[in-house]
Design a protein around this nucleic acid. Sequence first.
RNA 1: GCGAGAGUGGCGGAACUGGCAGACGCGCGAGACUUAGGAUCUCGUGGGUGACCGUGGGGGUUCAAGUCCCCCCUCUCGCACCA
Length: 811
Amino acid sequence: MSKTYDHQAIEVKWQAYWEQHRTFRVSDDQALPKFYCLDMFPYPSGSGLHVGHLEGYTATDIVSRYKRMKGFNVLHPMGWDAFGLPAEQYAVKTGVHPAITTAQNIETFKRQMKRVGLSYDWEREIGTIDPEYYRWTQWIFLKLFERGLAYVAEVPVNWCPALGTVLANEEIIDGKSEVGGFDVLRKPMRQWVLKITAYADRLLEDLKLVEWPPSTLEMQKNWIGRSIGAEVEFALADVPGTLRIFTTRPDTLFGATYMVLAPEHPLVEAVTTADRKTDVIAYRESASRKSDLQRQELEKEKTGVFTGGYAVNPVNDEPLPIWIADYVLMGYGTGAIMAVPAHDERDWAFAKTYGLPIREVIAGGQVGQEAFVSTDKGTVVNSSSPDGSVTINGMTPADAIPKITAWLESRGKGRKAVNYKLRDWLFARQRYWGEPFPIVWVDGQALPLPEEQLPVLLPETSNFKPSGNGESPLANLTDWLTTTDPISGMPASRETNTMPQWAGSCWYYLRFIDPKNQSLLVDPAKERYWMPVDLYIGGSEHAVLHLLYARFWHKVLYDIGVVSTPEPFKKLVHQGIVLGEDNQKMSKSRGNVVNPDEIMDQFGADAVRLYEMFMGPLEAVKPWSTRGVEGVTRFLERAWRLMVNEEGRLSHAVVETAPTLKQQRLLHQTIKKVTEDIETLRFNTAISQMMVFTNEMTKTEQRSRVLLEPFVLLLAPFAPHLAEELWEVLGHQPSLSQQTWPIFDPALIISDRLTIPIQVNGKLRAKLDVGTDATREQIEELARGQVAEWLQGKAPKKIVYVEKKLMNFVV
RNA sequence: GCGAGAGUGGCGGAACUGGCAGACGCGCGAGACUUAGGAUCUCGUGGGUGACCGUGGGGGUUCAAGUCCCCCCUCUCGCACCA
C-alpha cells in the first residue's frame, strides 16, 4: 500500500507533542463549564487491548476532544481495575507475583492507549491496587460497617475446590465457575455481607433520574425484583406456632389447597409427623445435594414430599396439608408459600403431579387445562369467609387484593408486604490479590480498625496457593495474622478474607476527581463541580452488577455527605460487541481476533479510530472488516491531498479567494451534521458527511482556505494526528485542540433552489427544480406539464402540496 | 416462557416530527493516467428491464408507510421455579 502521508511519523510526532505540552491536562478552574466523560476502566489482562475496547474508548475520546473545543473543562481519565483472579491464578501456576504481571499488563495497555491517541489526562491515572487508592476503599468499608451495612454471616456459599475459593452467584454460569468452568459445591462459611437490600427501594426509584439504555434499566429493575403483595399467617393445625407466607395474590387465598415449605425451612421438623419423618429427611438431603444446575435442569419436573402436618387457612379455617418441595426457595420471601394450583403455573404442575385438588377462585380461565394467572382479566368467585365477615366475590383481582389484605390486617392475620429478589451482597473472597479488610478479630468479635491505621497493606508473600480449607492465602501468613487490637490492646487476629473485584470499581470515578488527595477521599468542592459523570461508556456485561454496586456505594456516600448527587452516572451508553470478520464472536480458538497493534502498523491510529466509529451505530453488534479500514484510510488520504502536495507542503490548490455560495453551504451543512452527530453519538453518519465534503472538494481545483480550515477542525476529534499535521501545514501554531469548534450559520444551510418531487397517486413521476420563493401555483402549473402523461387530461381529484417538500396529484 | 432490542441491495449501514428508499463506505463493472497497478482519478452499480416490483411475511389507516395500528415469523441480548 503506497502512503500518501506517513501516518507513523505523524502519529509519533503529535503524541510526543501532546505529552510534552501536557495538552490534555484537566484544569481545576471551576469557572468553566465542566464535562465528565468516563470510560469503564479495564482489568489489565495479559492479552492487551482488543478492538472492542477501542470502540468505547474512541467514542469517549471524540466526545472529549469535541467538548474541549466547545470550551468545556473536560475530565477524561483512565485507570486500572487491577485486582483480580487471573493474575492470582497465574501466580499460583508460575510463582510470579501478581504485582509484577499486573504492572507489565498495565504498561502494555497504557502504551496501546497512547498509541491510539486517546486524550486522557495521565496525571490522574489511578489503580485499585495502589495502597493510596485502596486505603479509601477500606475507608468506605469502615463507613459501611459503622452504619450496620456490613455484617458477618454464616452463609452457604459456592465453594469451588478447583479454584480453592468461594464464588459469588454472579461468577457462576450454568453451575460452573465463570473462570475455568469448574464444579461448584455449596458449603457454609463465615462471610462478609453488605446490606444492599436496605437500599433496594432507592436503587429502584432513582433509576428515574438517569438517562440509561432501556434494556439496562429493565435489567436493574428485574434484578432488584420488587414485588408487592401480602404476608399471611397460617396457624399450624396440630402443633403450636404459625406459618408465615408471602404472596402477591392474596385475592386467591380461597383457592389455596396445600402449603409448601422450602426444604431448608426451620418449621419443617416441627410440622413433620412421625410416619413421614423418613421421607422428609431423605428429601431434604437430596435437595441439599442438588446444585443450582440440577435445580434448573429439573425445572419441569416438580418434586416434593408431604410432611404429615397441616396449616389452617385464615380466610376459611380449612386445614391445608403442608408439603416440602425445592421449587420453593428459602432465600425469597419467607421460604414458604400457599399453593393455589388454579392460578399459579408452578403450583398447578405440582398439584397435577401429586394429585392435589385444583380449586378455581378466579373465573375466566380453564383451570382444568392450565393455570389461569391473569390479574387483568377474570372475576373472583367462591371467595367468602364462612362467618360472612368478608367476601370478594364478583370483584376483579386488582380490587380484591387491597380488600382482602385489609381484612387480614384487621384480624391480625396478615399485612401488606414488599419483597425483593435482590439479595445482600456477598462481599468476601478467599483470595490473596484483593483489598484486605480493615478488621481484626478479638474473642470471635469483628472490630474495625481506626481510620488513621489505613491502609491495611496487603502483605508480601511468595505463596499464593489457597490455604485449602477455604480460607485465603493470607491465612498462611502467621506474622501478619497476629496483631493487637489498637483500641483495647488485646491480642487480635486479622481478617483473612479480601474484598471482591467489584470493590475497587465501585467508586473509582470519584477518585479521578481528586486522585492525589492525602486527607480526603475527594475534596467536596471538586466533587460538587465535577459530579455527576456526564457520559459513561462501557460494555453491557456490566449492566447489572458493577452499575448496581457502584450506585449502592454512591448512595451510602451520599447519605454520609461525601458526594452531592444521588446518582453517579447521568448518561450511560454501552458500546456494541465487535465481531470477527466471519461474523462470529472474536476468540482465540476461532482465530478471528483482530489485534489493534497490527492494524495500526498497517493503517495508522487515525484510520483505526475512524473505522471503529464508521462501522455502524455505537451500540450495535457489528463485524470487523479490514477492507473497511482501507476504505476510511482512502478517505483520510483524500483529505490530506486536499491541501498537501506530494512534497508534503501546502498544495497550490489551497487559495485565499472566497468560496462559492454552494461550497459554503456544503461546509455549513457539514458543520451542522458533524456537531449534532457527535452530540448524539452518531459517529458513523458524522464521518459519512465529512466524506461527502471531501469528495466534493476533491472535484474542485481551487480550494478556499475558508472551507478547509473549519473542516480540519471538524476532523480533529476523529483523526487527531492527521488534523494536527494539516493544521500546521496550513500555517497555524499547534495545537488545534485549543481551537474553538466551528459554528454553522443557519442562513447558509438553506438552499436557494429546491427539488420538489411530483407524485401521481403517490408514485414518483417527476422532479421539479424551483427557487425557494416558488409559489404553490407556480409549482402546480409546472408540475401539470411534467406529469400530463399520467393525468391523461383528467382533472385531479385532489392535489396535496407539502410546503417546499412534495406535490401529489390524486386522480 | 417472560422482558428488552432488531430485521432495509452482494456486504457494513443511511433515511429528521409519515413526504424522492438505499446517503457514506466495502465489493463489483467501465474508462482515464501509466512500462505496470491490488496506487490514484472519473463514471456506473436494488431487481427486472418500457413506465413494473421492491425495506422479514400478511392485513389495515392515509393523497402518501421502512416510519403509525393489528396479526404472524426470524434473529440478538438479558432473566429464567422469585410465589
